[in-house]
Design a protein around this nucleic acid. Structure first.
Lengths: 208, 208
DNA sequence: CATCTCACCTAACATCGTTAACCATCATAT
DNA sequence: ATATGATGGTTAACGATGTTAGGTGAGATG
């Protein structure tokens, strides 16, 4: 019949139009400032039409988040080719920074706001699970004895590195307009943080 | 006459009642979930009454923020008694963590949301300028040659330490309910981050 | 006693997310 | 061919939000 397929395809097309419009408007205007009505008007639909594709605004946001998490995960797995786990860790950190610089509004949604019970079904897919990739890298370094002997918790170590980079990113996103801090270049400071932290967690034994 | 003074005092009393109610409701319910009407009802006034004391909701928030910044600054200056600048730096970091744990919602307002052009008039008062205190401590350590020679920018160094601690705090505040991360104890991880970072920025020359 | 001030209230407005009820199209079953 | 029924969309509205225009009334001032 093929008509069923066409129907489905058309449905997905308008669904994608909604997502695309929402993505751009969230990114440029911010998430709170972007209204359902505005999204609808942009794609020349009625606000109610959106609700035939997404339960509510949160569902729309979460859907966009999933896409962004996948994107970040793909970015990370490109670092797989780096053999040295410590160097890979450094590169993951910088890739994370680049992602945040490229998508600051999405970054804000993904990591700076209390999300509504984010299910994260792709938790198990390594291609999409950025945290898992970071964790594995840290574990690899730990197994190779690269880190100080008192650092035995891979989760904690992963959270340490992640949050160190997240810190400077999120502070600058939130506070970049405040005059009482003389902000330095994000990339440079992030690099300095990564270098310092890695130096601080590396085992002192000279490596081969 | 004294009547003028009494009028002013009464005005300030209700103003403080508004602030007090808002502070607690923001802290327990969250800032977005706390409505003007709810604040008014709590102190048995009409929503409009609030607008005779504060321009709008943002002004109310900003006013609360100022108080919180003062509180944090006071917390910091208690570390003045620590002579060693590096140890003081460590203590500042942990004090910051304790502040965040004690006031997570305020922390969110102060450091995790884009504030509406926060004037920060008390920038010059050392007793209230937490960032300035951190900066001075870092500068002192730098002057004493405690840090690696390539680290010559006190602002960058201050931002590095600040953001490292901020990172783990804000991530846990925002993502503590997400099941895909196995969070470790905030205090312990923060301490590990501080230790690692400090080890990473300290000059290798053995100190006296 | 008349007037003025000023903290506060009543009533409303615009806008938001969201939903109930309806409508039009079109593949399908009789 | 025509009735049926699903489906993607619309119109109109609801309740809640931040906010404001215009009034009210008690107490200070002349």
């Amino acid at each position: 019949m093929g008509t069923k397929e066409r129907r489905e395809r058309e449905r997905m097309e308008t669904r994608d139009k909604i997502l695309e419009a929402a993505r751009e408007m969230f990114a440029t205007q911010g998430i709170e400032a972007t209204t359902m009505r505005a999204i609808a008007q942009r794609i020349e639909y009625t606000p109610t039409a959106i609700y035939h594709h997404f339960k509510d605004k949160d569902a729309l946001i979460i859907e966009l988040c999933h896409g962004d998490f996948r994107k970040l995960g793909r970015q990370f797995t490109q670092m797989e080719r780096i053999d040295d786990p410590v160097e890979r860790l450094r590169s993951i950190g910088m890739a994370y920074v680049e992602f945040a610089i490229a998508n600051p509004h999405h970054y804000q949604i993904m990591f700076m706001t209390r999300t509504p019970a984010h299910e994260h079904p792709e938790e198990k897919n390594p291609e999409e699970d950025a945290y898992g990739f970071l964790l594995a890298t840290v574990q690899e370094g730990m197994d190779a004895g690269r880190f100080r002997p008192e650092l035995t918790d891979a989760h904690q170590l992963a959270q340490m590195t992640w949050s160190s980079v997240h810190g400077i990113i999120s502070l600058q996103i939130a506070k970049c307009h405040d005059p009482w801090v003389d902000w330095r270049d994000l990339r440079a400071t992030a690099r300095a943080i990564i270098d310092a932290l890695i130096r601080g967690i590396l085992s002192e034994a000279p490596q081969a």
